[in-house]
Design a protein around this nucleic acid. Structure first.
Lengths: 196, 196
DNA sequence: GTCTATACCGCGATAGAC
DNA sequence: GTCTATCGCGGTATAGAC
């Protein structure tokens, strides 16, 4: 049996709703409805209520999303081409989802940054996890650790900003531009290392 | 007299609260309290209620913020140095505001993207306004219009993403990294134009 | 026109029947 | 353990006194 079915459905519904509409706009009653679970089950499986549900989502979906992006980057040999490919894939996915499902934690991160210390810290840890993993990936082509980390940080920021503009304008173009800019930054860093 | 004092105070309180906590988490009662205005005055000056107040804020604060950033960019002669300086200034401001006051419309933009068409369109128009203005600025150094526009779009995305990471981690460093990456992108574009 | 009181609803959370 | 009924609160919005 392992994990309860109901628990998993609640987590899934919470992840979708928090991702699309954010923390404040998502009600526990709606989560229960979409999960086809009785309301009381939320507090049975998540005694900490809404905050616990959100923290669970931030860490779980956050780690999962990070692994997904890194796997996408590893799927193409040339790193600059890989960046373009990954951002183009994100653009296609976002458009296919009618601009609803972008970064799983981005909206929540901004909402809670100045009002909920527990959730703020959770988002910060996820972002750091992503930057660490991406810095390792960039490290394959950029020897200088500081340069690799800077590229990694820029990639995460560019992705989050591109999601914001693409969702707002209902246009995949910002995400495509972001991928090309990241490829450009990588090429510059590699060229510099060759010469320096 | 011109504009009513009360109306201006309501707009100011709304701008601050929407910026810090987003759309859903901001209540009209709290806006009235912080504006030191009677609750009924909100509906007197903004018959459209919360949505009208938010749309007004998005367009007003959005345009104002765009002009402010462009003025900051124009205050330093060398464009690459100017980008570094502007992002560093944003980093200092954000830290000084205890990581509360970043982009006036970023949080709201993500919240409403899939749930409120009027507000989504308003944020999209503001972002486009910013990209247009920034593209004109980059055009001073990059002749190719498509390249200037790509840089402009990347700058806005990088700024939004940097605000997200800096607020989440309560650390100005992401904003500083973003500025250096944008300077790098600009130098690459300028160099390319010189050679091509 | 300014402001207060209130209607009405949905929220997060809980108690307790089964 | 699963589920329902309800509590108290705060939300948006409005009606009407002054």
């Amino acid at each position: 049996m392992g994990q309860s079915d109901t628990r998993v459905r609640i987590q899934g519904a919470a992840a979708t709703l928090f991702r699309r509409h954010g923390y404040s706009a998502t009600g526990l009653k709606r989560i229960a409805t979409e999960a086809e679970a009785p309301f009381g089950s939320i507090y049975h499986f998540f005694p900490g209520g809404k905050q616990q549900l959100a923290e669970d989502m931030i860490r779980t979906s956050g780690s999962e999303y990070g692994r997904m992006v890194l796997a996408l980057l590893d799927s193409v040999a040339d790193p600059a081409e890989s960046l373009v490919h990954a951002f183009d894939a994100a653009a296609d996915d976002l458009a296919a989802a009618d601009y609803a499902d972008a970064c799983p934690i981005g909206t929540v991160a901004l909402e809670v940054a100045s009002s909920n210390e527990v959730l703020r810290a959770a988002t910060a840890e996820v972002f750091e996890e992503w930057v660490d993993a991406a810095a390792q990936w960039f490290g394959h082509w950029v020897a200088e650790p500081a340069a690799a980390r800077s590229l990694a940080c820029s990639m995460v920021m560019m992705l989050e900003g591109a999601f914001m503009l693409s969702r707002a304008s209902r246009d995949p173009e910002p995400l495509r531009v972001a991928g090309r800019s990241m490829a450009e930054l990588l090429r510059t860093a590699v060229t510099r290392a060759d010469k320096g």
